[in-house]
Design a protein around this nucleic acid. Structure first.
Lengths: 160, 160
DNA sequence: CCAAGATTGTTATAATATAACTCTTGTTAG
DNA sequence: CTAACAAGAGTTATATTATAACAATCTTGG
């Protein structure tokens, strides 16, 4: 499961592949990929960058798909619960999942300059934190792993 | 560096020890632990729980130390920059550092029921995410590692 | 068709955070 | 000593993120 996001790749295929997987998954799991939900997923897939709920809402609003915050938040909640997108806590923002289909605990590399985000994965419960949790009797249900810094492109021109 | 937060311990000593270390560090580094900053640190130390900025502001306000949001946010910013407190991204909240003095990348175990937080530490840059970052040419500056779940006390009565 | 449940529309408001300007205080160069 | 400066604190206003609550509509199975 490689890191994706800073490498050049066939982005058109990357998007259509993800949409196809999401559709298949919805059909299989009796989930409904309604027009708003589909469009929000497309918007997130279009960029390997984190988008705020109100960025999303701006697009939806321009396209006549809804004007009020709950429209965006509901669609994002659906996508996150379905595993099609992730919430990036450090940015209060959202990003499409690039490992769709795989059962994974996501980890992010977040560029503080261009806000691009690469998704990797983690085996946190097997590492030191997992040891600490077991020792303390703490039951881990969900993990947030986010590293902030500079992506390759932003290290040269810099913008510190 | 053990996990602290879910174990019973001499809390009075834990608090006064932390205050003493903070004072020493301020004296050594030419930082000013002003009345508001000191009080906010005391409030955070009083509980091994994450407190929101407006929780803090409520206390300050009741004590005549300031009534407007910037008062709390400035004090919290100072404490975080000085390393006396950490921001918990998943909760938009703040907690006193329990490893004061040690140079560390904090990791948190967060109980979703009682909001108590234990601070452990991480060696993230040495693990899989570190490998992924190096492979991608990403330069890590700061890490957020937060595990959410149930603490020992909340697993029995549960509250799922 | 009808009922039940899921989804969407809409209004209002809550919760979190910062910009920008003023005033005070403490330090220091002259 | 004192003017000038820097750091901190007071204050007003507003930006950003998020949710509660209820009404309307659509979808599906019986």
């Amino acid at each position: 499961m490689p890191t994706i996001g800073f490498e050049t790749h066939d982005h058109h295929a990357c998007v259509s592949d993800a949409m196809a997987k999401a559709e298949a998954r919805c059909a299989a799991s009796d989930l409904r990929l309604t027009p708003v939900r589909r469009r929000v997923l497309e918007l997130l897939l279009a960029e390997h960058r984190a988008l705020g709920a109100y960025d999303i809402l701006g697009h939806l609003s321009a396209e006549g798909l809804g004007t009020q915050p709950p429209v965006a938040y509901r669609a994002l909640d659906f996508l996150v619960k379905a595993g099609f997108a992730h919430r990036v806590e450090a940015l209060n923002a959202y990003i499409a999942c690039t490992h769709l289909g795989a059962d994974h605990a996501p980890a992010f590399l977040i560029c503080r300059n261009c806000r691009s985000v690469a998704e990797s994965n983690t085996a946190l419960t097997q590492g030191r934190l997992g040891d600490a949790a077991r020792a303390a009797g703490f039951q881990i249900e969900h993990t947030v792993v986010e590293a902030q810094g500079l992506c390759p492109a932003c290290q040269t021109g810099d913008a510190a």
